[in-house]
Simulated assay, not measured.
Amino acid sequence: MLVAELVEKGSFEAIDALARAFPLEVVADLIGFTGEVRATMLRWGQAAMQVLGPTNQRTAENFPVAGELYAWCSQVTADDLAEGSVGRGIFDAEARGAIPPDTAGHIIHQYLGAGVDTTVAAIGNLVALFAHHPDQLALVRESPALVPAAFNEVLRFWAPVHAWGRRVTRDVTIEGSEIPAGAQVAILFGAGNRDPRHYENPDAFLVERNPVDHLSFGYGPHGCAGQGLARLEAHAVIEALSRRVGRLVVGPEVRVPGNTTRSIEELPVLEVIPA
């Protein structure tokens, strides 16, 4: 419905009107956020990702905002969340002993802290990529079964999270380099996703590639716990765009440096050419 309304308008700002609007509504309804919290979600979610990066000006500016999120999640109760929501379900699980005491708020913190800004980045990236590659959008329109593969290629081509920190637990040798136990390393997802030893023609955006082993959701036990929801949201957007849009004519995209996420801040859609 949201994509249909935007396509009908003929032009729109893709980040505010789609990439931000859709995930915020989904997560708000899922967790059961009401009132002022719904209006604060984006600000909190963005700050939560910024403070995970290196100590710099962005980290310092966002610590107070991330602290607001942590304080709210430390005090939230089941009564603060809508009936029938997943958030209420988390408190119900705590009450019956299915999860440890006093952890419901922390789980909700993870949903809001990690499940908003990254999905906004992914949806903004997919709109820009399909605008730049209308031939690939046409392939999805001709073969709707390509929707999951197309999103995998979006994630491989432009990783929403460009770096993540890890502490080495034992001495290890990687490509001839010794990394001692206790060292801190930055995992560069985008670099791995463009490794020419693994992906043929890695700098080409090809929806038929279906790179199921991309690194943008992490790997193994460190895989993103919310990736199922992110896939549902992105698949819905790709499917709706491919059915209704032949081509998106966009203006210059504006990016703002971030400590953790790589996202587009502004992306004007100047014209929608129907399918």
Score class of each variant (00 low, 15 high):
178 E>Q: 15
93 A>F: 03
41 M>L: 15
109 H>G: 01
241 L>M: 04
101 P>A: 13
263 S>R: 15
119 T>L: 10
260 T>H: 07
120 V>G: 03
1 M>A: 08
70 Y>N: 12
89 G>P: 01
140 V>Q: 11
210 N>E: 13
238 I>F: 01
102 D>R: 07
26 V>C: 09
265 E>M: 08
45 G>D: 07
235 H>S: 07
164 W>S: 10
198 H>E: 11
196 P>Q: 11
124 G>F: 12
222 H>V: 07
266 E>M: 09
224 C>T: 15
211 P>C: 09
11 S>F: 13
155 L>M: 15
20 R>H: 10
222 H>F: 10
267 L>N: 02
108 I>D: 02
61 E>C: 05
118 T>D: 02
230 A>L: 12
167 R>H: 10
126 L>P: 04
35 G>Q: 11
1 M>L: 03
54 P>R: 05
196 P>S: 08
126 L>C: 05
151 F>D: 00
90 I>L: 14
154 V>W: 02
119 T>A: 12
263 S>A: 15
215 L>E: 04
250 V>M: 02
90 I>V: 15
212 V>W: 04
227 Q>V: 10
37 V>H: 03
21 A>Q: 05
194 R>H: 12
85 S>A: 05
12 F>R: 00
241 L>R: 07
138 A>R: 15
184 Q>F: 11
21 A>N: 11
125 N>Y: 08
36 E>C: 02
204 A>F: 08
181 A>S: 14
34 T>N: 01
92 D>E: 14
99 I>Q: 05
26 V>S: 08
269 V>D: 06
228 G>R: 09
148 P>G: 00
215 L>H: 03
104 A>E: 05
202 P>F: 06
111 Y>G: 05
160 P>E: 15
220 G>F: 09
258 G>K: 09
